[in-house]
Simulated assay, not measured.
Amino acid sequence: MSRLLSYKVFAHVSFRIIAAPLALALLAGGCAQSGDITADGGIGVSAVRSVCPVVGVPAGTGDITVFDPPASRDASAIDVTATITNVRGTCDGAGAAAEVTSTVTFDVRARRSNTAAARDVTLPYFITIVRGGTQVSAKRIGRVAVHFDAGQAIASTSATATANISRAAATLPEEVRKSLTRKRKAGDQDAAIDPLATPEVRQAVLTASFEALVGFQLTEDQLRYNAQR
């Protein structure tokens, strides 16, 4: 059985799990599956927490536009546009290694304006590990090449990026795990109390939460263009 923690979720869980106002109650021992409705006398839906990071694309970095000439922002000057899509994460959180390796694969779909000749376009991207929703603990820059045949306006390719996370950093302290997983029954005095209402518990969950994020490595001008368009 993998080292996962199971909770009952009483509130909506957003994409950024670490930033959502989760209201948690405790499940009985055992491995619950995400989305299961509990049947131990409590109310809620079980969610599964792993040492593996959530994967995604930071806002404003999933698209890139290249202009020719570079200083122009006219629609007629758009040379190449590209989008990161189909982001998928693979991670084995059940092992005993000191570090957890997260492998993120994604597709890049590009379009060009001038289709006269064959062309290769190389675009920079990054993978970053974010801890607690705000702290960048690692970042790596890569490049992905998209090939266009003569006469071809749209092309796509796939890319893979990896990042490592300390298992110890992504593991909740024992006392916090006990607080979150202690079984409560309906009618108990503290049955309706959210364990995350305790600042120490909430901070521990936040600190042990990681995200593996990929996006295009944009210039300041490209970031500004994405934000204003």
Rank of each mutant, 00 (worst) to 15 (best):
S2C: 11
R3S: 13
S6A: 07
S6D: 08
S6F: 07
A11W: 13
H12R: 10
S14Q: 12
F15G: 04
F15D: 07
R16E: 11
A20S: 15
A20R: 08
L22S: 03
A23I: 15
L26F: 08
L26S: 05
L26P: 10
L27T: 14
G29H: 10
G30T: 09
C31Y: 14
G35C: 02
I37V: 10
I37Q: 00
A39C: 04
A39T: 08
D40P: 01
D40I: 06
G42K: 03
V45S: 01
V48G: 01
V48L: 03
S50N: 05
S50V: 08
V51E: 01
V55I: 06
P58W: 05
A59M: 06
G62S: 09
T65Y: 10
T65I: 10
P69A: 08
A71F: 13
S72P: 09
A75Q: 08
S76I: 15
D79T: 12
V80N: 02
V80R: 03
T81Y: 10
T83V: 15
T85K: 06
T85R: 06
T90Q: 07
T90H: 09
C91L: 09
G93E: 07
G93I: 13
G93M: 09
G95R: 14
A96I: 11
A97H: 11
A97K: 13
A98K: 11
E99T: 13
E99S: 11
T101H: 14
T103V: 15
T105I: 11
R109I: 13
S113A: 14
N114D: 15
A117E: 15
R119C: 12
R119W: 15
F126Y: 08
I127N: 00
I127S: 02
I127C: 04
I129P: 01
V136W: 00
S137K: 05
S137L: 03
A138P: 00
K139Y: 03
I141Y: 00
R143S: 06
A150P: 00
I154T: 10
I154N: 05
S156N: 07
S158N: 07
S158F: 07
A159N: 03
A161T: 09
A161N: 02
T162F: 02
T162I: 06
A163K: 02
P173W: 12
R177G: 02
L180D: 01
L180R: 00
R184V: 11
K185M: 09
K185Y: 14
A186Q: 06
G187I: 12
Q189S: 10
A191C: 10
A191V: 14
A192G: 12
I193R: 15
D194K: 07
D194M: 07
L196H: 13
L196M: 13
L196R: 11
L196T: 14
P199V: 15
E200T: 15
E200D: 09
V201N: 06
V201D: 04
V205Q: 11
A212E: 05
L213T: 12
V214H: 05
G215T: 12
Q217W: 13
T219W: 08
T219V: 08
R224N: 04
Y225P: 00
N226A: 00
R229M: 03
